[in-house]
Write a protein that binds this DNA or RNA. Structure first.
Lengths: 151, 151
DNA sequence: GTTATACATTTGTATATACAATTGTTGTAT
DNA sequence: ATACAACAATTGTATATACAAATGTATAAC
């Protein structure tokens, strides 16, 4: 990833704004690729993994598709089909809401939980490796700045 | 985008590492969506736009597909087909390399340059808006930290 | 109760992405 | 010269993403 510095410095007089945008694109891509490597053996995409973690966070309470979609990183992707794929792998279950039959309730299965738990260590480790070039203070500083951008 | 802070703070005891990863995913997504809004009227995707800017940076010298792919953010995408789409829009031209007929040489057309120049202002403006929550010093600090991550 | 409207999900379709396999070209060893 | 490996791009295929349209359900107005 040394190339990035070259790109940014070689491009004549790039603004700090453009440098930041390029850096964010690159680090985002690198993180996704690295995490995906570890998800592949379980036949999971990043968003599928994400949705499973969202469901785990509910501690048993099911979520309907809209709730899931709101919490997803990529709002535009197709939640029905994503959940279908998790369903096929038996990682989630789906029932029609008794109170409002338009809604479906999705919750994570034991198998889903077990898979997530298996993945936790390796994903944590991957993320730690990615942020390893920064010390604690720098990492906190980065979070502060990113949070400002996200508001 | 206020939700992000909620997600990060609500998730019990999230590590600084995980908070950084989530923030990067979210800001990346937000930037892409915003930029895409402005590219749509020209029927361009982010990567197509990127490739056109790479070609413009060559000041007339053509690049072959491998060179382009190396410089692309997403290395795994299909450069042949991406260039095909730019070709259809007459934004680039393609010739077979005389010295090595396995290679193809891609360069940007006048129409491509004109389109890029039209887009420059609006994209610059969009990027400025995105980094607006940070002052100059904070932006430089962010770049320093992101560059460290990217190495 | 019927009609209209809003809601929640699903389905359809076009495009994009990831990766493997194939085609055609060049260089090299014999 | 021929055979073989390496190279550069293209094609095939499965999956993912973006967005519009359609389906089925609930709520509200009259």
């Amino acid at each position: 990833m040394k190339e990035l510095e070259k790109i940014i410095s070689s491009t004549s007089n790039i603004s700090d704004t453009k440098a930041a945008v390029i850096s964010i694109f690159h680090i985002n891509n690198y993180i996704k690729e690295t995490i995906l490597t570890h998800l592949k053996p379980h036949d999971l995409s990043i968003e599928q993994f994400n949705v499973m973690r969202i469901l785990r966070g509910q501690k048993g309470n099911p979520l309907n598709l809209q709730d899931i979609q709101e919490r997803m990183i990529n709002k535009m992707s197709n939640t029905t089909r994503l959940v279908d794929k998790l369903l096929k792998k038996r990682f989630v279950k789906r029932t029609i809401c008794k109170q409002n039959r338009r809604k479906v309730e999705i919750s994570i299965t034991e198998l889903g939980l077990k898979t997530l738990n298996d993945l936790d260590a390796v994903i944590d480790n991957t993320e730690q490796n990615i942020t390893a070039p920064l010390n604690n203070e720098e990492l906190k500083q980065l979070n502060k700045l990113l949070l400002k951008l996200n508001n």
